[in-house]
Design a binder for these strands. Structure first.
Lengths: 136, 136
DNA sequence: AAAGTTTATGCAACTGAGTTGCAAACTAAT
DNA sequence: ATTAGTTTGCAACTCAGTTGCATAAACTTT
C-alpha cells in the first residue's frame, strides 16, 4: 500500500482506504473504465463515493477522462509526469468489437492549425475502429 | 420549400412537414445544436419526434453528430457530398466562453499512424478553447 | 374512391449517467 | 478528548436519450 499511498500524496490527495482501493483498481486496468465499471468491481459500494473519488483524482491530474462517445465517461491513469496540458495529451482508441477504450499513450495528438484568433485549451481525439486483438 | 424537399429526397428521406421544418432550422444555424436546443426553436413540439427526425437525418448522412463533451450531442449539416467517411471528417471546436460548438469544415482530421493491426472507421476530434469571437 | 398497408407522429413512461444535499463517520490538530 | 475539517453513504433528483404503443398521415392495391 505504501506505493499507492505515495502516488496519492504526491498528487496532494489524502490517502483514505477508499481511495487506495480505487487507485489500485485503476492501476490494474489495461483499458479505461467508467464509473459503473468501477462500481461493479466492488461487492458493496456507493456510486457517489466512487464518483467523487474519480472527480478528485481527475482534478489532481492522477487520472484523465475520456469521452469515447458511448455515453459513459471513461477514466485512465495519467503518466507520472502528466499535467494534462495539450502537449501531454494522447490519442484514444475505441474498439467497435470489444467495446473497450484504450489510451494510445505514445501517439500524441497532432497539432492543428486553427483559424486566426482561436486559442486551444484541450483536445479530445478518439479513433473508433477495430483493435489488433479483435482484428484476427 | 422546393429546395428543402430536394435535399431530403436526394438523401432518401421522405419530405414531411416536420422534417422540412427541422431541416430549415438546421440550415439556418451557424453552429451545431443539440436536441434540446432544437426543441426550444419550436413553440409546441414533441422531443421524441425531433429525436427521431435527427436520427433519421443522421442515418441518411444529411447531418452528422458531434460529441463535444458537454453531455448533449450536437448536430450539424453535412456537406452536399459528405458520406461521413474518415476522409470526409473535419475537426470540431467547442468554445469554453460562448459554449458553442462549430464545424471547422476546412480543417480535415489529421491522419494518425495507428499501431499494427488496428483499423479505423471513424474519428472524433474536438478542440476546446476560445473562439475568435470571444477572444477579443 | 375504399380498404388495407406502411410510415410518421405524439404521448407516457422509463433508463442510466451524472449530480446535489444532508447527515453520519472519520481524520487531524489542538 | 474536543473541535474543525474532510470524506463517506444514503436518498433523491436532473437531464439526455430511448422504447412502446396508439393515433394520424401517406402510400398502395384493388
Amino acid at each position: 500500500m505504501k506505493d499507492t499511498d505515495d502516488k496519492l500524496t504526491s498528487r496532494n490527495i489524502k490517502p483514505t482506504a477508499m481511495r487506495e482501493l480505487v487507485l489500485d483498481i485503476l492501476t490494474e486496468q489495461k483499458m479505461a473504465i467508467s464509473l459503473s465499471d468501477l462500481e461493479q468491481k466492488f461487492h458493496k459500494s456507493d456510486k457517489v463515493t466512487l464518483y467523487r473519488t474519480l472527480k478528485t483524482f481527475e482534478e489532481k491530474k492522477l487520472i484523465h477522462s475520456i469521452d469515447d462517445g458511448t455515453g459513459a465517461i471513461k477514466y485512465a491513469l495519467c503518466k507520472e509526469t502528466c499535467q494534462c496540458h495539450p502537449e501531454d495529451l494522447h490519442v484514444h482508441f475505441f474498439c467497435l468489437k470489444c467495446q473497450h477504450t484504450f489510451c494510445l499513450s505514445n501517439i500524441p495528438i497532432p497539432s492543428i492549425n486553427l483559424p486566426v484568433n482561436f486559442s486551444v485549451e484541450n483536445i479530445n481525439m478518439v479513433v473508433k475502429g477495430v483493435c489488433s486483438n479483435c482484428n484476427d
